[in-house]
């Protein structure tokens, strides 16, 4: 099974870059069949990239008001209208892939609650702790 892990967010905005950290940790483990990517935000090109994979794992930061330190959800392919934005959601990426190519890989989104979105490259302790748990969860799932 070919798996793509995409960690995305602004890595100059402290906890917003936690997806990059998760990807770095996974890369360090050199898991077989796993390709890693990072991005500032999801753009239309990913609709092309993901078509070559069986499964895509998205890792993103979530707003401080989120109810849990981290959570996992299946991504439902679809597409939302964005007035002036250039980004896509994970569902948009898979939805556009499906529309363009007739099928899309299965997608999972891990959201990690961020606490500090100011300029900087440091993670708050709670966000880092949650990210470590997410790394472990992803490793467990990939090895199952």
């Amino acid at each position: 099974m070919k798996v793509l892990v995409i960690g995305y967010g602004n890595d100059s905005r402290n906890d917003d870059g936690i997806g990059w950290h998760v990807v770095a940790e996974l890369q360090r483990r050199q898991l077989p069949g796993v390709t890693c990517a990072t991005a500032h935000q999801l753009e239309v090109d990913f609709a092309e990239t993901v078509r070559d994979f069986d499964r895509v794992i998205f890792v993103d930061a979530a707003i401080p008001e989120s109810p849990r330190p981290w959570w996992r959800e299946e991504v439902v392919p679809g597409f939302r209208s964005h007035a002036v934005a250039h980004f896509l959601t994970p569902g948009d990426v898979l939805g556009l892939c499906q529309t363009l190519h007739g099928s899309a890989p299965r997608g999972v989104l891990f959201s990690i609650r961020g606490h500090d979105f100011n300029f900087g490259t440091n993670f708050s302790p709670a966000t880092r702790q949650a990210a470590d748990e997410v790394v472990q969860q992803i490793v467990t799932e990939l090895q199952a």
Binding site: D45, E48, F79, R80, D92, L96, L100
Partner: peptide, 28 residues
């Protein structure tokens, strides 16, 4: 509005949407 986006375009004008993807890809 829910259909006035790139996916709506793919459904209704697939050749145009694909050209957009490919032209952007060339730049990338």
């Amino acid at each position: 509005p829910a259909l006035r986006n790139i996916v709506g375009l793919v459904h209704q004008k697939p050749d145009i949407a694909v050209k957009g993807v490919l032209l952007r890809k060339h730049g990338q």
